[in-house]
Simulated scan of single mutants.
Amino acid sequence: MNKSGYILGIDTSNYTTSLSLVDLMGNLVDDIRMMLPVELGNVGLRQSDALFHHIKNIPQASKPLMDNIKLKGELVAIAAATTPRPVKDSYMPVFMAAKSYGETIANILQIPFYEFSHQEGHIEAGIWSIDRKVNKEFMVLHISGGTTELLKVDKTNSGYNIEIAGGTSDLSAGQFIDRIGVKLGLPFPAGPTLEELALKWRGNSIEIPVSVKQTEVSFSGPETFLRRKINEIKSKEQIAYSVFSCIGSSLSKLIINGFNKYPLEDIIIVGGVAANSQIKSLIKGAKKLQNINIHFADSRYCSDNAVGIAILGLNNYLRRNKV
């Protein structure tokens, strides 16, 4: 059995084209991400437009990525995010780009092709980034541009069994951030620039009503409340700070209620919103969360990426081949 080689991971989410290479030791060789263009003032892309950009981006991203393995080894497997979640009938057109390119390359090279969900990729990237082994049930808080879900997770041989334990009843945390950010004239996705504004604020937070019932959180009410207040508030910095304060407080309550229902030991927090320093600080500082093992994914691997997909592919390849 060949002891050298690489696994290629591909993920084509709503707003990022991602390609990653890992070697058979689980080391990240390269990680290339290309953000999809969104016109200023818009709060997203149509699926057809996003798919078009992925089709254009993958060939551009693949050349520098594959240059790194010339004369060093060869591709032995390809893994792709082909669905949003690991459940029946989970589907979004954007993931067809990853599936189509990945499966075609695998067929041509006559190597294995492994399919996973985008959500499993987020979880695996988070676990890999903190170098943590998990062999039992644990909780995951997945907070991103399109998702706010509290998950009960159990690792399987090939990926994860995931049960939704709670989450948003309307807007995701990322949508709340983006809608307010775009309203303030910031580019989409608004998270990074809104955070820059928030870090400059030194005063009090606007008292935005927090809406959490059991394991269900709502951000539509806070968004509506803040939209009505925007013209009255002179400081964009205060608005930005208040958005993240509201989200941090809401998610802290959601986690507390989730662990009251499912008394597990650990929670891993993943997704683009998990990279926000203010939200991290609020969750870590919540008194009622002090007895829960909270693990934030490394901020570099919180946002959409193909690293977790590549690692899942590696795990499957090693299990099937005694390398």
Rank of each mutant, 00 (worst) to 15 (best):
G174V: 00
Y301V: 05
M34A: 12
I206G: 06
L194K: 08
N260V: 02
L197R: 10
D266W: 02
T82N: 06
N135S: 14
I233E: 11
E223D: 05
V43N: 14
L264P: 02
V212H: 06
V29R: 01
C302V: 02
N157Y: 08
E237A: 11
D30E: 15
L45Y: 07
N161W: 03
V43T: 15
I279W: 05
V243E: 05
L36V: 12
D11W: 06
S117F: 06
Y101F: 15
Q60Y: 08
C246N: 12
E103N: 14
E115H: 03
Y301D: 04
I268Q: 04
I239P: 06
G313S: 11
P222A: 09
G145F: 06
N42L: 12
K253E: 15
G272D: 00
H118T: 11
G221I: 02
L51C: 00
K200L: 14
M92A: 15
T148D: 08
G126I: 10
I10W: 03
N135K: 09
S249A: 11
S48P: 04
H295T: 00
T12L: 05
L71M: 09
L40G: 02
K236R: 12
A125M: 11
A240Y: 06
N107C: 05
T17C: 13
G5N: 08
S252V: 02
T193M: 09
V210Y: 01
K136T: 14
A190Q: 01
